[in-house]
Design a binder for these strands. Structure first.
Lengths: 227, 227, 227, 227
DNA sequence: TATGAATGAGGTTTCATTCAT
DNA sequence: CATGAATGAAACCTCATTCAT
């Protein structure tokens, strides 16, 4: 009984913690870290201000947790997207699709995720940039691996080092997502995404790519369940 | 004499204004807008706080001026880089080189320029995001034009619309610059830059490209004189 | 219990609010609006500066509330003083007495009340002058009515329109109160007040006036309870 | 020559000093002491800020000078108005008229003069309230004398001590002037002024009063020349 | 002498954080 | 435990005043 209750409590606590983070996400992504007060987050999350500090020792840590939590989830989804069965082209294509799907489904995360991963060393005294870097580097690593084996298989152009291909791909995805964010109708990400990949493809191999959209397995579903 | 004196005054004022902007640039780029107080900028610029407000009516306007000033200068340098004589490949290559040179020479500008142009719609209540967008779009337009005629000439791959090629190129440049910023030795931008272009090149035409690095005319020199 | 507790809280809050207003009243009336900082009021009221802003959104609103609160209370007491049973002379006499009593009991209110009602359109950007005017005009109206029926009854001289008699009476009361404020011993208001009325009396009727000071009912007591 | 030049200089200086005071008067009376900066006065007076401090050691002294200067002039005009030949009724009537004329001709002076003389003990750190009091008391003294001899002559009601009659008269004049200021058409001072006096007149003597408006000699003209 | 650029004390207000209830 | 009243450091900005030119 005791055990069960504490579990209930813990789950309840986790749920509350998540509510706070969700409220924070909405506000931070809309107004920016410094234009959102703890009081406003508390109000949106429907908690007393004091309660906030039971969950997070200070504002920065709330922010950090929020970013890290979403980043971790997103990252693992992205990495999973690279682990589908299929050749490297299929993997990358799936990655591009899944990343777009996930981030388009939640603009708030989009803004913050891209902002934080690309400009990790800016803004906020935040000493947690290292954490996010490490996380992001893991993704880059994974992506590099795929590119590397893809190059070996003659699927991708070996013009750039795999790591740089990874970085480039990510930055292009980001900019297309930002374009979409600015004007979804004029810049439909999914439509554009289809061709992004072509930039990286070895010409000869592009004809080899017989993967169909149907192959996109293991997608955003996991993440959504989490959020 | 009268005329001359007023010119002296004006020059002096301009110099001071520039000193303030320079101090602000250093601090803003290091700590972020909200973590820098006017007092700190005043101290770094070695002015009294009141003097600051003689030059800029408020903090936001100081920030805006700073960003816009540098952006305008940088943008015009970038556009010039696209206007050298030569074929489209040479133009783009020059652009990639010049952009890198200029931004690597001033890390502070690098951080803010990329941060502002890419994430113009975030942070700060700033209603001047529109201004910077417009400026940036002009550059993208120019870049698109070059890509477009390059495609017509069979130099670039027509996989993406010219505008998207422009966006992609810029985002890749940015990410390589950020890599360089993180670790200049491990990620030498100039060396990498040489191959960035290849992503966009039509395979057939890549052999056509006989331009040599020696062609890079009209470079960063202008900007340096300005800054 | 719940109800009771919330009442306790509310009463506590009201008491504190009143403490702030009281501190403000003392300082504002002694030094003037612009020579009193919020910090000084906070210190006198023994609150932290932040607490002040929990009660009043800004300095001007604190001032406005202070003036309006006291004015409303005072005004209602003054109007009540005119509503005692008796003839018009008795009413006016009671008014003169009550007004004197109330204001003499609190010099701070005296200064501000007279200052604000007489010079409602001066100083401070305050757009609340209209509010105080309206309040004051209501009193003048009431006073006019009494004079009017007094004139009809042949008690007051019909030399001036009732409204002007009201204005004149108030201004004379004010100046005698200011004299008293300057030197209470040399200018005892209450003693002088007894004859102020005579200025307005029709000679014939002055003999008719048989009211005795004992009649002064409904006086300042209410106000005191309130303040 | 030297003498003459220095005189010219002095006159020039005096004129400039007066220009400053005039500019200050307009601004102070419109916005209040604390809502007017030295810079604004300097701008309106068309002097450099530094020049202001050549004429007045600080803002408060400028204010003091302004008030005192106008008060002295006005006071002497008012006193002169009491010195016309004729009986006491004529004198007082002339006083009421002249005071109205002078103050109505310059609303700025009206606001400040009345405000300062009546509420000399408020606002501003001003330690010069004593000065203005003394000045004002001199006027009251003079007015008292006239009332006193008027009472002896049976012209005024002996209900109040002469000094109080003086105070009362002034306060009534002030309130009628403020009424006029608020709405000149609805509250024409001059028309009302004619009957103000009646409040103070002994009934029997009122018929004795044979003075005609034509008698108003020595009026505002002097003052106007001065201002 | 007149100027106005420069100064910096001090004002109002916000907001992250604490702690008694 | 949860609460939210209270705190006060620190931000932005104004303006009376000085002083080098």
């Amino acid at each position: 009984m005791d055990n069960k209750q504490s579990t209930r409590r813990e789950r309840e606590k986790l749920r509350q913690r998540h509510d706070i983070i969700k409220a924070a996400l909405g506000l931070f992504s809309e107004f920016g870290y410094h234009n959102v007060s703890m009081h406003k987050i508390a109000k949106k999350a429907e908690f007393a201000i004091g309660t906030m500090y039971k969950f997070f020792p200070n504002k920065e840590e709330l922010y950090r947790s929020m970013i890290m939590e979403f980043s971790e989830k997103a990252n693992s989804v992205f990495i999973e997207a690279l682990e589908i069965s299929g050749n490297e082209i299929e993997k990358i294509r799936n990655y591009v699709t899944v990343k777009g799907k996930l981030l388009m489904e939640n603009e708030a995360i989009l803004k913050l995720y891209i902002g934080r991963t690309q400009f990790a060393n800016m803004d906020i005294t935040a000493c947690f940039n290292e954490d996010i870097r490490i996380l992001y580097e893991k993704l880059l690593e994974k992506l590099s691996d795929v590119f590397e084996s893809g190059i070996k298989a003659g699927l991708f152009k070996p013009l750039l080092a795999p790591y740089y291909l990874a970085v480039s791909l990510n930055s292009i995805i980001s900019s297309f997502l930002l374009l979409w964010l600015r004007d979804p109708k004029q810049h439909p990400y999914m439509k554009n995404a289809a061709t992004i990949l072509d930039l990286f493809l070895s010409n000869i191999q592009s004809s080899k790519d017989t993967s169909t959209p149907a192959i996109k397995r293991r997608g955003v579903e996991n993440y959504n369940r989490m959020v």
